[in-house]
């Protein structure tokens, strides 16, 4: 069970990190998504309830910070990711590690697929290969940060699972 005060503080820290740092780390107008990383880790550690709340609040703040169209899309995609990733709570020692890691990778892929489908829907209809490239690049940058974080705080250490 997580303390609400700690949760709220962490939430806003991640938001401000995204708010101030994302632009400096952008490559060709693609930015890393620290909010996705936070929602993933929160949901895997504390479950669906906290994952959905973190995703919804951070998504709403993201959209309030400046989005031209589809206000509410970020809260939707992050909530879905938080909900799906929440199913992985306490599953690390029950699933084969490969399946565990594959599952959260698929959840991240799905989130960016939804986002890219809305963002690049014109490309989806006219040039599917280019759409795939944009989806992979948008997702890949954030996945790079997740993989680096996995080296520092892997999931098995994150919720104190002892390796057999």
């Amino acid at each position: 069970m997580m303390q609400w005060s700690k949760f709220i503080i962490l939430l806003f820290c991640v938001f401000f990190m995204q708010f101030y740092l994302a632009e400096f780390l952008s490559i060709n107008m693609i930015r890393p998504d620290f909010i996705t990383i936070f929602v993933l880790y929160t949901a895997i550690k504390f479950g669906r309830f906290y994952g959905v709340i973190a995703g919804f609040i951070l998504g709403l703040l993201t959209d309030l910070a400046g989005v031209g169209s589809y206000f509410g899309l970020s809260s939707l995609t992050y909530s879905i990711s938080g909900y799906l990733a929440g199913y992985l709570k306490d599953q690390y020692n029950r699933l084969i590690p490969l399946y565990f890691h594959l599952t959260w990778v698929v959840i991240i892929l799905f989130q960016f697929l939804v986002y890219s489908f809305v963002r690049y829907q014109y490309l989806f209809e006219t040039d599917f290969i280019l759409f795939l490239e944009k989806w992979v690049l948008t997702m890949g940058y954030t996945m790079g940060f997740i993989l680096v974080l996995q080296l520092i705080i892997p999931f098995k250490v994150y919720y104190h699972v002892e390796s057999s």
């Binding site: 994302a22 930015r31 993201t62």
Partner: peptide, 9 residues
Amino acid sequence: NKGITSNMN
């Protein structure tokens, strides 16, 4: 500010 989502729009 140029927004904070994954792609700039």
